[in-house]
Design a binder for these strands. Structure first.
Lengths: 125, 125
DNA sequence: CAAGTGTACTATAACAGATAGTACACTATT
DNA sequence: AATAGTGTACTATCTGTTATAGTACACTTG
C-alpha cells in the first residue's frame, strides 16, 4: 500500500503524508477506514515508529484522520473534501513552473500537453 | 539582481542556481556576460563566499558558465540552449502534479487555466 | 607589485531527519 | 483480571546537509 524511497530528497514522513493523501484522493481510503498502526507499518516498511507517528500527527492536524487510543486511527468524513481543497492550492505550483517554462521559451502547448496526458487525453497531433 | 529568501526551505546555493538559470532563460544574462564574483556577491547578499562558490561550481558542472581564474566567470554560448533543455525535463513534474489533481477530482480546465495564466493568456470566462 | 579574480582546505555550528529505547494510557478480547 | 494491540510522550543519539569562518594559494590584469 505504501512505498518508501529512501534515496529521495523528500523525507520519509512527508512521503507517508503524500501517499496517504493520494490514497484518500483516489478513494482507496474512505471515511471510516482504519489506517495501518504505527507499529504494523513500521515493521512493513522498516521505518521507525516515531517517523510514522510524525506523519500521522500531521495528517491528524489537517483533519484527515482521527485517533482512537487503544482502538486505531481512522479516516474522517471530511478527508476527501479537505484533500481536494489542498490540491487546489497546488495550482500555484503549476503556475510557478509554467512561468519558468515561458521564460525559457518552452511553447505553452508542450506544457498543456503534459497536463492533458496526465488526464488521459491524448494530443490531437 | 539576486534575491535570497533565508526562510525558504530550499538552500541558498540552490536559490542562486535557480535564479541564475532564470536570468539566463530570460535573456538578462547572455553569452559572454560576466557573473558577479563570489566575493562581490557575498558582500551584496551577506552570504558566505563558500556558499556561492558551491552554487557557481554546480552551474559550471552543467556547462552554463566557465571560470577564468584571475579574470572572472562568464556565461557560455550554450547556456541558453542548456537551460531550455533542462526546462523540458520539468514537464515530468507538471505531469506528476496533474496526475494528482486528476486523482483528487480537480477539473482539467482548472489546471490548464493555471498554465495559461502564467503565459499571460487570460481565460475566456 | 597590487588588486581582484578563482580555488582548495579545515574546522565549526546549526538544523532536520531518522533511529533506538523506554514508558505509560486506553480499548477490546479472552 | 490478563493479554494484546492500539495511541502517546519522552529522551538520547546518530547522520547528513547547509551554512559559516578563516586561511592559504594560484592566476590575470593593470
Amino acid at each position: 500500500m505504501y512505498q518508501i524511497d529512501r534515496f529521495a530528497r523528500t523525507p520519509i514522513y512527508e512521503q507517508i503524508i503524500d501517499q496517504t493523501q493520494r490514497l484518500i484522493a483516489t478513494g482507496i481510503l474512505k471515511d471510516g477506514d482504519q489506517l495501518p498502526s504505527v507499529r504494523m507499518l513500521s515493521l512493513e516498511l522498516s521505518v521507525n515508529p516515531n517517523t510514522l507517528q510524525k506523519a500521522y500527527a500531521e495528517l491528524e492536524r489537517r483533519g484527515l484522520c482521527v485517533s482512537a487510543p487503544g482502538n486505531g486511527r481512522f479516516i474522517t468524513p471530511d478527508a476527501l473534501r479537505l484533500v481536494g481543497e489542498g490540491m487546489k492550492g497546488r495550482l500555484d505550483e503549476v503556475r510557478s513552473i509554467a512561468e519558468e517554462m515561458r521564460a525559457a521559451g518552452i511553447p505553452v502547448e508542450d506544457v498543456i500537453d503534459a497536463v492533458q496526458s496526465a488526464y488521459g487525453k491524448e494530443t490531437k497531433s
